[in-house]
Amino acid sequence: MKPPRIDALLDGINLGAAPDEERVFSAPWEARAFAVALALSEAGYFSWDFFRARLIEQVAVSDRVRERDGTASRGEYYEHFLRALEQAVAEAGLASPAELARKIMEIEAGT
């Protein structure tokens, strides 16, 4: 006798596991993004509040798109998280978007 799960509410992202057993991250890249953000804030490159302000902004943009178009075209939470992280990293002068783009090309060319 399982009570109805909130599938409609979950946007299809719930993993259906018992609550305490759901995985914290649904993909390895999410875990890496979280760890990089936390490591940078713990090391003092920027504060978590600095990062959070950018995260809130990314979430708000996604919410507006969703309300307007009814689509999740900007992805789910960790995609907002990653955009906020890239932004925080650039603003803190740690790595520019151009550097990042070059590094992606480099990795792609090398493999």
Partner: peptide, 29 residues
Amino acid sequence: HGPAARIKALEQLLSEKGIVDAAALDKII
């Protein structure tokens, strides 16, 4: 690019600059 490629590049870049360390990230996770 996809998020996995982007975070991989970001981590590698920051790691080359000595800003983050893969083992420390593993510990956080």
